[in-house]
Design a protein around this nucleic acid. Structure first.
Length: 454
RNA sequence: GGCGACAUAGCCAAGUGGUAAGGCGCGGGUCUGCAACACCCUUAUCGCCGGUUCAAAUCCGGCUGUCGCCUCCA
């Protein structure tokens, strides 16, 4: 909407527990969208909320005998740790629903004033769905479909609605629940109005991109559209992006099936970069199946990229020639066009990260076969730069911190080298095993001995 | 019942009209004292049936299979 800028809202998690790997998918996917837009020079105002008042949070609080606030604060902190471990950038703003109640009340009041909402006797406020003729435009549902497919089981409070399709904007407090004063009753906001308000406050009445999991299309996003467009009189979001689900053994993840994994659990077994790679290896709109085998495959794949990157760093550091030759300069421009070209083309085709990753692998192959000891430092640096640029956009970290080994380890490596020279391979292998037990893996490359952490 | 999505090699996964990217894995080989890394070679005619077209994984129809959503559930 505004030259050089993007306003983007992503529905965030309800913080009643550690986030699971299903929650991680939109975080990783839309963080990558953001990174690409920033890479292209856009200034991205990225807003993602935490839903910190909700039945599940309250239930958890009662279970533990603490306040709802204590629960939500705790899991917001844990969620931020997981996000950092997945290399998900913090949002420009992470609003909390409970801190935006005033704005929500104002929006609800406006909707009532315009005739789009109505309070009932107990103080509940409902949205009058039939008043908004475009209701269903996002989820491709029409009111007849909704009514014909209407479930026989009705929720409590149904009898006070004007129409079964109407949804809650404000609900009265129940015993022991957190509540805020409002013109209608002491209570708390409905879930949908929270996002409408937070999006409006931090991004404005119209935004460029609104994103979230595909399960949110109906009713959550449909209801957000109804609320925001009726309240503000403007188109709410220009683009909607929805990621498909992450399944386990082709089934929706759920606690009852026992196929529920938190990001924290996976992080104990794998570097979460592997999880990130795994998710980006498929298109965000395709359902993705999660399994241990697939994580193993992803780990191996990612390692290939990291190995290639480390080799380049090594070659650069040990390059004999410093400056690029004219031929190298020309070649660098050529590969930039080829690989960055393919990468951008993929990303600009609805963020086809799987295809973009293929471009990364092709560059790695190029580097492994065409870049060598005879390449100039500047040239190697240039190739590495291209690789790093692509990986940065994907949020994959390939740059390892320069790490110094302690003296004992250094000495062991030196001793092993001496043993190898003396053809005392038994001793050499013994040392290698010893280092392996310490978590250090040695590789005898043509360029010298390299090591890495297991 | 209503609405919608998907079906490509052992596995994951790109590819929406011109004769199948990439990765993992398997097997063979080169390099290495060995191992690892890397490199080379090898691994598919795209769920089934029919149609449109000079040409289809790609378009149309039918069938089969899997999955998602259907109002206080994130």
């Amino acid at each position: 909407m505004e030259e050089g800028k993007v306003r983007m809202y992503v529905c965030g998690p309800t913080v009643y527990n550690l986030i699971h790997i299903g929650n991680a998918r939109p975080m990783i996917v839309f963080d990558t969208v953001r990174r690409y837009l920033e890479y292209k020079g856009y200034e991205v105002n990225y807003v993602s909320n935490f839903t910190d008042v909700d039945d599940k949070i309250i239930a958890k609080a009662n279970e533990e005998g603490v306040s709802a606030e204590e629960i939500s604060k705790r899991y917001i902190e844990e969620c931020k740790k997981d996000m950092a471990a997945m290399n998900v950038k913090p949002a420009t703003t992470h609003p909390l629903a409970t801190e935006e109640i005033g704005g929500m009340i104002e929006m609800i009041q406006t909707l009532i004033d315009k005739g789009y909402a109505y309070p009932v006797a107990d103080g509940t406020v409902y949205f009058r769905v039939k008043k908004f003729s475009e209701y269903g435009k996002l989820s491709h549902k029409n009111l007849e479909d909704l009514q014909s497919g209407f479930r026989a089981l009705q929720v409590s409070g149904e009898e006070q609605k004007e129409d079964p399709l109407d949804f809650v904007l404000w609900k009265p407090k129940k015993e022991g629940e957190p509540a805020w004063p409002s013109p209608w009753c002491e209570g708390r906001p409905g879930w949908h109005i929270e996002c409408s308000e937070m999006s409006k406050k931090y991004l404005g009445e119209e935004i460029d991109i609104h994103a979230g999991g595909e399960d949110l299309i109906f009713p959550h996003h449909e209801n957000e559209i109804a609320q925001s467009e009726c309240c503000n009189g403007k188109q709410f979001a220009r683009y909607w992006m929805h990621n498909a689900f992450l399944n386990i053994d082709n089934k929706k993840m759920s606690k009852s099936l026992g196929n529920f994994f938190t990001v924290r659990e996976i992080g104990e077994q794998y570097d979460l970069q592997v999880l990130r790679f795994f998710m980006l290896n498929a298109h965000y709109r395709s359902p993705l199946n999660f399994s241990r085998d697939l994580m193993e495959a992803s780990r191996n794949s990612l390692e290939r990229i990291c190995n290639g990157a480390q080799r380049l760093q090594f070659l650069e550091k040990n390059a004999v020639a410093v400056d690029m030759t004219a031929a190298e300069s020309e070649e660098l421009q050529k590969i930039k066009n080829t690989y960055i070209g393919k990468f951008e083309e993929a990303m600009e085709d609805d963020f086809n990260t799987a295809d973009a990753i293929a471009a990364v692998f092709e560059l790695v192959k190029y580097a492994n076969t065409q870049v060598n000891e005879e390449s100039s430092g500047a040239y190697v640096h240039g190739v590495y730069g291209i690789l790093k640029q692509m990986c940065d956009v994907l949020g994959l970290i390939i740059e390892k911190e320069e790490e110094l080994l302690d003296e004992d380890v250094e000495n062991l490596i030196a001793e092993r080298q001496a043993a190898r020279k003396a053809k005392n391979f038994a001793r050499a292998d013994e040392i290698r095993d010893q280092l392996s037990d310490m978590g250090i893996i040695l590789e005898d490359t043509r360029e010298g001995v390299k090591w890495k952490r297991a």
